[in-house]
Design a protein around this nucleic acid. Structure first.
Lengths: 193, 193
DNA sequence: AAATATCATTGATATTGATCAATGATATTT
DNA sequence: AAATATCATTGATCAATATCAATGATATTT
C-alpha cells in the first residue's frame, strides 16, 4: 500500500527515498478504508486530512440551495482527496467528499505534512510539482468552462481523462462538467454518429 | 519598487528578510517597463519569465479559431503575470499577456526562482502560500463557472474583486467571466433597479 | 475642434442547454 | 426471482445567454 505512495513520490520528485525516509513516511501517513458511499468529509466539518488514494474512487461535491449535488472533483488512484480551502485554514468546509467505490487511503494532517516537507526533500519537491500541475490543470478547466461548448468540453474530457469514464456513472460526469445528464446523453448520441 | 516585493514576501511568508537576502533579490529580479498595449508574452513564445507587478494592470487571453480574444486572467499590482504552463515546461504558449496600463514589473526566470527558493526561506514559504491560495481561488472560479448563473457570477466578482472594475473596461470583465458584453450590460441594468 | 477608435447600451432574433415528465435498462437488495 | 434503487435515454417545452445590428457615449489621436 505504501509502495504506491513511494512510487508516486519518486515519479514527481525524481528523487530516491532513503529507508529512513520511508520509515518516517510509514509512521506518519495513516491507512484508512472507506466503503462505498461512506463520507471522508461532510459539510460543516473541517478537512483535517488530505488523503492519498491507493485504491478506489471518490467524489467531491456541494449541495446547493435547491438540494442538488454539484460534483466539483473526481478522484481515483494516485489522486489526493481534500478540500483544499478547509485543509488550508482549518475552517468548516462547504463540501462533501465520499467514496464512490470501496477505497483505500493514506491520510495525513496539514501539520504532519509540513513536518515531512521539512525533513524529506523528495516530499517537498513532490508538493511543488503537484502545485505546478494542479495550477495548470485548473487553468485548463477554467478556460473550458468559460469559453467552450458543452460538446467540446465533453470531448476534451474524454481525451484527457478516459479512465474516469469507466469509474463514474454518466450523470456524475455530467455534473462535473457543469451540464445536465440529459444534455450529456444527447451529446453522446450526437457524436456517436 | 523592490520595496513592494519585499512587503509582499513578508506578507505571505510572515518572515523577515535579512539585508543579504534583499540584496540577492535585487540582483536577481530585473525591472521591466511595459507601455499600454505592449506584449509581455505572445502566442508561440515561451513564457521564460514570471513578472511581479509593482504598478499597472495586465491581461492574459487567447485567440480562438474565430479570432475572438478570450480573457482568462486579469492582473494588477501584487499579482504575478506568467503563463504557468509554458513557464513550467518551457514550451510555446498559446496565450498572450499584455499591459492594459503602463506597467512596472520585476521579472525572474524559473531557474533563478528555483535558486532563490533554495537560498531564501521566506521566498520558499511565499511560493507555498501562493500556491495554496491560488488553488483555492481556482477552485472557486471553477465552481462559479460550472454551477452558477452569469448574474450571480458577476455579483460574486463584484464582491470579491471590486478593484478590477475600476481598472478594466466592461467587455474585458465580461470575457473574463465567460459572458458576452451585451449580457453583462443587461445584467448591470437589471441589478441596478 | 474634428476625426477616429474604443466602449457601452439596446432591440430583435437565434441557439444552447435546462427543466419536466415519462420510459427503459441495468444493478442491487430482499 | 421479485422488488427496488440507480442509471440512461427520449420528447416536449422553457429559460438563459449568444448573436447580429444599430446607436450613443466616451476617450484618444490628429
Amino acid at each position: 500500500m505504501y509502495q504506491i505512495l513511494f512510487n508516486y513520490i519518486h515519479n514527481y520528485s525524481q528523487m530516491i527515498l532513503t529507508s529512513e525516509e520511508m520509515e518516517l513516511i510509514k509512521n506518519t501517513f495513516q491507512p484508512k478504508k472507506l466503503r462505498k458511499r461512506q463520507y471522508f468529509l461532510q459539510e460543516g466539518d473541517i478537512s483535517k486530512f488530505t488523503g492519498f488514494i491507493t485504491k478506489g474512487a471518490m467524489r467531491q461535491y456541494y449541495v446547493d440551495e435547491k438540494g442538488v449535488e454539484n460534483v466539483i472533483n473526481l478522484f481515483i488512484e494516485n489522486y489526493w482527496a481534500t478540500d483544499r480551502k478547509s485543509f488550508f485554514d482549518l475552517k468548516p468546509s462547504i463540501f462533501y467528499i465520499d467514496a464512490w467505490e470501496n477505497t483505500d487511503l493514506l491520510i495525513i494532517t496539514r501539520a504532519d505534512m509540513a513536518e515531512l516537507m521539512k525533513k524529506i526533500p523528495a516530499i517537498n519537491e513532490m508538493i511543488r510539482i503537484m502545485d505546478d500541475k494542479n495550477a495548470i490543470a485548473s487553468q485548463n478547466r477554467i478556460n473550458a468552462a468559460i469559453s467552450i461548448s458543452a460538446e467540446m468540453r465533453y470531448e476534451n474530457f474524454l481525451k484527457s481523462y478516459p479512465q474516469f469514464i469507466q469509474r463514474f456513472p454518466q450523470h456524475q460526469i455530467a455534473s462535473f462538467l457543469g451540464i445536465t445528464k440529459e444534455t450529456l446523453s444527447r451529446i453522446k448520441k450526437k457524436t456517436l454518429k
